[in-house]
Amino acid sequence: MSVRTLTIDGVDVAIAADQTILQAARSAGIPIPTLCHLDGVSEVAACRLCLVEITGMQKLVPACVTRVAEGMEVQTQTPKLQDYRRMVVELLFSEGNHVCAICVANGNCDLQDAAIEVGMDHTRFPYQFPDRPVDISHPQFGMDHNRCILCTRCVRVCDEIEGAHVWDVAQRGANCYIVSGMNQPWGAVSACTSCGKCVDACPTGAIFRKGETTGEKERDRAKLNFLVTAREKKEWTR
């Protein structure tokens, strides 16, 4: 296994050549905010929170999909990056209907965490107040599109880990929404195995267990990683 050495925010890091900047930063304990990234599923580089600067490159690059290279100098917290990250989170809050006070994920929400991490306490953009539905047709789970940030984690866990591909994205631009089955109510999708991985993967309170009330959503993220690495690690129980 070949190794690459690089610096991230001035810290020397040595890591396997096939790893990404995000993995290198995490191994060195350097925080880079993410939202669409989820351990165990493929990367889409869509949320743009993990953009970093690399000396000698004009463009900002997403840390989650950029492989490390020898001698690379990475900056993760320049004022420009901090500014852009705050704007990304502001755009997300203004785009959907995110009302923490009544949300099942309050206090246990990746979007909230991201807002705190990038220092966003209010949004400068006008709220769009989109008219979005709530789907509670599934016997165990519910989907509140108002809280969805279109990170597509649910789409990927369902397709790549469970193999059911219940979810996908419909429409385009601001009209995008997560669609279940052939644009059916979730409860009517026979492909759904009710495994609940999408609930564990969802960063916000968009996909939740019925019966949970404000601030009660809990996730078992470790389960996803356990499932993905079980064969490789030969660990069949946990």
């Binding site: 869509a46 006008p126 994205v169």
Partner: peptide
């Protein structure tokens, strides 16, 4: 651009809406 954005990344999906407004 707003109506042709695919909606995958946030800056284009939500940013063009705000720019248009």
């Amino acid at each position: 651009c707003r109506s042709e954005s695919c909606g995958k990344c946030i800056p284009c999906r939500a940013g063009t809406v705000q720019l248009h407004q």
